[in-house]
Design a protein around this nucleic acid. Structure first.
Lengths: 325, 325
DNA sequence: TTGTAGGCGTTATCAT
DNA sequence: ATGATAACGCCTACAA
């Protein structure tokens, strides 16, 4: 454990001078080189705990995610890292496992560790978030909106649902079902609302039996898809409103022992193995979302940001495989 | 920002008493309740930076991973979290992106932030790791062996390769190919060595054209599998030595426009969509590996661990779908 | 049991 | 430009 004091002693200067060299303040060339030599010789790096305590902020940012196993979020994380590292900040990831208590726990840690900022993909409402923002801590929320007055990078979820459903209708389908997440999940509800609006705009019915509230994971998609296909009058097309239920739905179709249906999925599928013919994808570009969120956070940390803003992230429609026969 | 001083003032005691209450030292009941009331009223939580500086260690552990987008590692992370959280430690994840410089960067942060311990899945050799261990920092290495004298939780990679290849040979195949990672990746090489040994033990040849060194990701698996199947004499079976190249290989097979081959994969496939008939899986249970590593780390942090040990993690063979026709 | 005070390692202020 | 020193917030001897 080498301390600044030892560096100072070896270089024959005061600790203040060492500190100045390390922080790029003006120091005479002779002393500077002596200090740098001593630093190199001892392999000294400043103790970040002491530095954070003194400066009242560290060079860490916390990226607090609800589900580290969802490729959407890991891809978002990569985007955040790229921007943050380039700005001299290090990213630590915290997994809330969709649990609000765990979320509060990690937000509090970020605060108590004097981290420079937090990017949060909320698992649910947070009391701490507002407090952090009030104290002028840098905070950016991604993916799921919160009522607080903080920077947010979001999708227009109703629009996503509408456009995805429209794409399916435009391919000639009249019975278009929707698999979405739990009623209590706002993005799931919004995307389903978009689906409903699209059908109505096209003059099509959107009966309750065409809308399935599944758990928002792979097994939820499987169950829901199986249920839809087993109905007396199965849908001609199915919209899966996130990547995981999309994987589940795709699995059921790929098993191939039931009626077919055209699939639309909101999100991306990094690890699919089946040939996905005849599937409509509305890609979300989570990495870009991470890049944007990190840029906003860096600006805020540097004090270059104005009032809190909400940015809507674009999405991209892609048709995979052969057109519907 | 509420400080211990304010709590002390509100409770009418000294800061020392507040600190004692917070850390479970003996305090008279009257004072204790007064302190607890004040803490609750102010919503006080101790500043972890100051605490870490004073105690010389924080309650954070760093989980340093080479690829946050690989489900193997996210699953491992979940295991680590479960044990660590139960032990009162919080986990922060750091992504090295398979880059040794980034790895050293995060290891240094873990050290300079006085973190309680580090679990590292190495991207390559680390000079800092040995220094951390020497300074009696808690360190556990997972998945990829390092020469240093630290706790390690590993697979027997040669054995994995051997058993997986044996399983394919035992199903009657004589031309069994192998897709593995880059020559410079020790686990990739070891698993390929196991494959070679198995073939030799069965009296089968293991010619160079049956062994493909791919990049260890999905696209590497695709390219390698396509190459193998396009050969004049395509293999009857193919061993993919990790989950990602397994996905790539499976994709090529599922596309179905070439000759077929039976597939063996070392690892798990959380997001596959195709029906995987006729595939041999040697499952690795990364979550269990994370549980074990975290338990060892906690023991070491608590000073309850003896000399550094290496634990070999078991794997499980599974045959999916119908037997080879 | 409780309070006082020193120190963890760094940075920043204030003299020089 | 440089050095001595206070302060960041907390914990823990030591004293009472």
């Amino acid at each position: 454990m080498t301390r600044i004091k030892e560096v100072a002693a070896l270089a024959g200067v005061s600790t203040a001078t060492v500190s100045r060299v390390l922080n790029g303040k003006s120091v005479s060339p002779g002393m500077e080189s002596a200090v740098r030599r001593a630093v190199a010789e001892l392999g000294y790096t400043p103790n970040r705990t002491a530095r954070s305590l003194r400066r009242q902020h560290s060079e860490l940012i916390a990226l607090v995610l609800p589900d580290i196993e969802n490729p959407f979020f890991t891809s978002l994380a990569r985007g955040v890292e790229d921007v943050a590292r380039a700005a001299g900040l290090s990213v630590v990831l915290c997994n809330t496992d969709e649990d609000v208590d765990t979320q509060e726990h990690y937000l509090r840690i970020a605060d108590d560790e004097n981290m420079a900022g937090v990017i949060l993909a909320p698992a649910g409402p947070s009391a701490l978030l507002a407090r952090l923002a009030e104290r002028h801590r840098a905070v950016v929320v991604v993916d799921r909106a919160v009522p607080d007055d903080v920077d947010q990078v979001l999708f227009d979820n109703v629009d996503l649902g509408r456009r995805a459903a429209q794409a399916l209708v435009d391919r000639g389908h009249r019975r278009v079902a929707c698999i979405t997440g739990p009623r209590a999940t706002p993005t799931a509800k919004a995307r389903a609302d978009g689906w409903r609006e699209a059908l109505h705009e096209k003059g099509l019915p959107a009966p309750d039996d065409l809308l399935v509230y599944a758990n928002y994971r792979v097994d939820g998609g499987e169950t829901a898809m199986a249920q839809l296909l087993a109905a007396p009058e199965p849908p001609e097309a199915v919209l899966a409103t996130n990547n995981l239920v999309g994987v589940g739905a795709l699995r059921v179709l790929a098993a191939g022992d039931g009626p077919h249906a055209q699939l639309g999925i909101i999100g991306d599928l990094p690890f699919v193995t089946s040939p996905i013919d005849d599937t409509f994808l509305l890609q979300l570009h989570p990495r870009e979302m991470g890049l944007m969120a990190a840029r906003m956070l860096v600006d805020r940390i540097r004090g270059e940001a104005g009032p809190a803003q909400r940015v809507i992230q674009p999405s991209r429609p892609v048709m995979l495989g052969a057109p519907a026969s």
